[in-house]
Design a binder for these strands. Structure first.
Lengths: 230, 230, 230, 230
DNA sequence: AATGAATGAGCCTTCATTCAT
DNA sequence: GATGAATGAAGGCTCATTCAT
């Protein structure tokens, strides 16, 4: 991405990313890709050897930019709460991006989540794990006494909240209506998810409700799935 | 028709559900489906008319059971917190199910979330919306003063936490290792997500950290993404 | 061949035989085959599964008729010389056939000789070996005192003479001119090869030359390839 | 140019000869050839212009050595029988060669026999005809009274016997077993074919059988294929 | 003289579908 | 209601070839 090369190979990769992100590996056709890239049908074979190898390269390419942006604006002097807010905001920025030139990057990553291919090893190692460990570090600063299991679950809780707006976007939009959904913009969701999570971790005020004192504890799972209290 | 008939049509639907869930619409082939169903190749066309129509029927079928199970054990006398716990538990039960006969039901629903087809209208109307409104009702009981936007966002926060274990399962497992992931079982996650969300809503104690008083507020989104405090 | 079925499968096999015989496995195209057979392009896949499987079937088919014709007119009461003449004549009949409906049968068998494929096992077992053993039996009757090695070599000498008119036909025709080659018809070659071979085996008069007495023995291979004349 | 230069062009020709001999014109690929020759993909086009032109050159190359070796050791003072023996031996030497560096030369010539291409004109004119005429001359010395038709047929009889071990080698080996086939080595076959042919021509003793007097004439072709005299 | 990138035709195959039975 | 045969479109891929350098 540093130098936007307009070589056939680069155009092919970009076109492939968009097609694969939109239609999936099976749904995408080489012919549609080369048409987008204004390349010849044999170029795929020449430069990548295979439809599958092209897919793997597209998946790997889809991370290249994602991995180097965030650290730049992370200030070590910030409080953990502030860092979490930044983390969430950056996550959401990519998650909510649409019609964006880079929009296919995230779509493709999500496809890899549901149906990991050979490319997922690289994906996890080079992109996801660094991001995940940064979040873990923030949470550990926020909750020094939490054990690792709790930290992992809490990380997943935060990630899950953010990703949901990518994953379920079409359904969610239809569910609450386009207007209501449009109200859930970057600023609002950043505040919501950050506040929601900080309160859950005990380092921020609860969201949404008057700050009632009625903190009635709730029964703990008894393993029977009925949650039968009393 | 409610009971599982062993007619060709029923076997076809079951086989189609499994194939579509596993391979997607494009990846699944009619031949694989009729082979699973031990049916003739023309049977699909005879009974459903089309590959796409068969897909829609399979998606619709994938909800049938999902919609009628949960209400049975929902006790109106329970507290909102207790109801939320039950809701989360039931959600997770389906989400964590694997190797299950019904496992394809959820897989197919998730596919519809990412790439809604014609079937998604029915899906939203008949399955997702009822579930969603039940959760909204619980949250409204828990936070009577919250506006609808907050309720919607909070619902998505809860749903997102749960679904994440379905969506990102293969990646998450590779990320934290199989052992650590196995520790995140139904009981633990029910407790975690319920506790996490109740604390966020202000009706439960924070999770994971000592109940510190250091509830330092955090700056509000200023729209520049830098979260510049002060 | 008993009932000339005009099914798609039968037409496909016939067309494939002709194409494969003429162009070889690589040179032949499925499209040319289905065009000849006036069938659809998918019919090959449906009936045979594969281009290669179609080839194997065509090779096997190419023998079906060859194996059952000859025995009928072989009279056990005939002398060995008479039997050999019949054998050669039948062999040559097929070898010299051209523009014949069955002409591709031999061509295909010859291709298999040069580049045996998977089909050659069946070919040898079911077609070639029976024919070969019949010839061996005739020669053994003619030369009871010959050892097996001599019988094998003599069989090959006879077969080689016959096959040459199939193998090298285009070159031979160009070599001696079309007119001279046309003179080498079935009758002439039957007489020539039979006479040539019987004389060689010592049970017939020499051919072509006056019956000179000058039977000067010739030196035996001394292994130096120079055939030292002295 | 007579000596084997290690230029790209020479390496290309050698590699092409091997590939064409092994896989045929259609089966051989330019990529396999340039890989063998460690040359660039455009080199074929540069040096030869065409795949077909390369093939023709390879065919022509395949004779170069064949044509000039034999005359050197042919002694005009030898008897016709002795000369025939030498001729057969030289022919067999090439025919039986395998694993030889030059083995592709004969394979390629045989391919041309079955499916003459544009190269066959040159092949016949410059290589085959000279050899053929040398054999014809020997036979004429041996059988001065024979007419030309008989001489041609006899030449083909001798050539056919020799070539058979090239043409049908894989099948013949499978037919009689590897051990028996291995026994048919250069020395044995030279003796056999020479003896077989000399006896047939009436200038040598019959082979293989006791020299029985029972030279019972055999009926002449009556054109009805049944050969039934009387 | 030699190269790597790019081209378009054509290959085999598989697909969903429809047709008679 | 159910089946096996047949269809044509389109898929991925490989091929020989040519173009600039």
């Amino acid at each position: 991405m540093s130098q936007a090369q307009d070589t056939t190979k680069a155009r092919l990769l970009e076109a492939a990313g968009e097609e694969f992100a939109e239609k999936g590996f099976e749904g995408a056709t080489i012919r549609a890709i080369i048409e987008r890239a204004k390349a010849n049908i044999a170029a795929v074979n020449y430069h990548f050897g295979d439809k599958e190898k092209l897919y793997v390269q597209a998946v790997i390419e889809s991370h290249r930019c994602g991995v180097d942006m965030e650290p730049v604006c992370m200030n070590p002097a910030d409080s953990a709460a502030e860092q979490l807010r930044l983390y969430v905001r950056h996550f959401l920025e990519r998650v909510l991006a649409i019609d964006n030139r880079d929009s296919w990057h995230h779509k493709l990553m999500i496809r890899e989540m549901l149906q990991p291919s050979h490319a997922s090893e690289t994906l996890v190692r080079e992109v996801i794990r660094p991001k995940f460990e940064r979040l873990m570090a923030i949470l550990q600063r926020a909750c020094p006494e939490a054990d690792e299991k709790r930290l992992i679950a809490s990380s997943f809780s935060i990630i899950g909240q953010c990703l949901h707006y990518k994953m379920a976007r079409p359904i969610a939009e239809r569910l609450v209506g386009p207007d209501a959904f449009a109200g859930l913009d970057l600023d609002y969701l950043t505040d919501h998810i950050t506040g929601f999570s900080l309160a859950a971790l005990g380092i921020g005020p609860p969201i949404g409700c008057g700050d009632r004192d009625s903190r009635t504890p709730v029964s703990t799972s008894a393993g029977n799935g009925q949650g039968d209290p009393r």
